[in-house]
Amino acid sequence: MSEQASNPIRDAIQQAIDENPVILFMKGTPEQPMCGFSARTAGALQSLGAPFAAVDILPDPRIRQELSALSNWPTIPQLFVNGELVGGCDIVTEMYETGELAQVLGVEQTGSEPVETQAVGPRPMGIENRLN
């Protein structure tokens, strides 16, 4: 089996991006972020009440490696909407502040006050669980 032909982690990441209209790759989970930048990015999504899938990249270092190779983006977090990389923490925060994030997500932004997280919230996923 050649390494080039088979890359189950990259395939699983690509599949997760394809299957989830809004997906955030982050350190930790939205409930328990393990990095300030991941926390801020998840917080922006949560405050807009937009449903999103979340993948914790920490359990297996290969997830981050393959994700960055796939997206051509060196850092975590990474937000994808409809299969496209939107950005990391800085871009997502900037877009949140200008209202562009709500636009991209197709939701209404109600003022600048963060609203309560809705029950439709994030669904943590495990890429590494698909590798067995």
């Binding site: 983006w73 871009i91 877009m95």
Partner: peptide, 10 residues
Amino acid sequence: SRIEQHRLVY
């Protein structure tokens, strides 16, 4: 795009 601008710096 913002993405491309950041990639240029990265």
